[in-house]
Computed example of a mutant assay.
Amino acid sequence: MRDDHTHIQEFFGARARDWDARFPDDGPAYAAAVARLGLRPGDAVLDAGCGTGRALPALRGAVGDAGVVIGADLTSAMLAAAVRAGRHRDGRLLLADVTRLPVLSQSLDAVFAAGLIAHLPRPEDGVRELARVVKPGGLLALFHPIGRAALAARQGRRLTDDDLRGEGRLRPLLAAAGWQLSSYADEPSRFLALAVRQP
């Protein structure tokens, strides 16, 4: 049996070259979600599961030249697509598993994660690792440019009550890892859950 990482790398590796072309209109949604993080010049932020780096320009714009922007992804083909798009100029790209980040504990002000949580083999381990690298009071944004129902329809599946991104499942998952859910929006045009790192 193949491990979960191999499956993820194969899935995204096969789609990396045309990923941005498949979703050409997502830029404003990414920028709006990044704005909700309230980043300040000089902050340090991670784009966890950054893919082709679509959030990196907005993250760089928010933290400025003095800030630190890191994009981490498990799939080298996605990072290569980020480089081809020139997004490596907006942040340092790391080939890394977000459940074992090569990042110091409590060194970041925020984490942005677009579409990540559904692809984590063990979501509890992933959100715990994201909590490890964020300072107390720092923020986590779990984002998708369309809501859960719209995404389920796009994928040809039914939205069920046990969906991990449903508020009833997400809130206790985050709490167990040291996050407190502070806002939750699941609308046709976006999914955005914000959580605060607890002391």
Rank of each mutant, 00 (worst) to 15 (best):
V127A: 01
Q198Y: 12
I70Y: 15
I8H: 08
P57F: 03
D97G: 11
Q198N: 14
A72F: 12
R92I: 09
A32D: 13
H119K: 06
M1W: 13
H144K: 06
A31I: 01
H7I: 07
R36V: 10
G61Q: 03
P123K: 02
F12P: 02
G126P: 01
P123Y: 06
L101H: 13
G13R: 02
A141C: 10
A77K: 11
L37R: 00
L46G: 02
A62R: 00
A66K: 10
L39M: 08
L194S: 13
A31Q: 13
A150L: 06
R40W: 09
S189W: 15
G51P: 03
R15A: 13
S182E: 15
G86S: 09
V196S: 11
V63Q: 00
S182A: 15
H7T: 07
R154Y: 14
L151A: 06
G166N: 10
L59S: 05
L39Y: 02
L130K: 00
L37V: 00
A31V: 05
T6K: 06
Q155A: 14
L140P: 07
R89M: 09
A33R: 01
A113R: 01
A32Y: 09
A35L: 04
Q106T: 11
A110F: 07
Y30F: 14
L116E: 02
A33E: 02
A185N: 08
G156H: 05
A175C: 01
R158Q: 13
V83R: 15
R128T: 15
A195G: 11
D26K: 03
L95F: 01
V69N: 05
L93M: 07
V69P: 05
L130M: 14
P199L: 08
D109F: 10
A114L: 02
G147K: 04
L181Q: 11
A16D: 08
R100C: 15
V34R: 00
D18Q: 04
G147T: 07
V134G: 01
H144Y: 15
D162V: 04
A58P: 01
L151I: 02
R157T: 10
C50Q: 03
G156L: 08
L159F: 11
L101G: 06
I70P: 01
P41S: 10
A195N: 10
S107L: 04
D109I: 03
R122H: 15
F112C: 00
G13M: 06
E124I: 10
T160N: 09
S189N: 15
S183N: 09
F143P: 10
H119T: 09
A118M: 04
G38F: 09
S183G: 14
V111Q: 04
F191Y: 15
D163G: 05
A21N: 11
R154K: 14
V45A: 00
G166V: 01
A113V: 03
G49W: 01
Q155G: 08
R17F: 07
V103T: 12
G51T: 00
D26V: 08
G51D: 02
D20M: 07
L139D: 08
A29M: 07
A32M: 06
D4G: 10
P199C: 08
C50R: 02
V69H: 02
H144S: 12
L95A: 08
A153S: 09
A21C: 09
H119E: 14
G168Q: 09
K135R: 15
G13Y: 05
R17E: 14
Q198M: 14
I70K: 03
D4S: 10
A177G: 06
A185G: 10
Q9I: 11
R92N: 05
R2A: 14
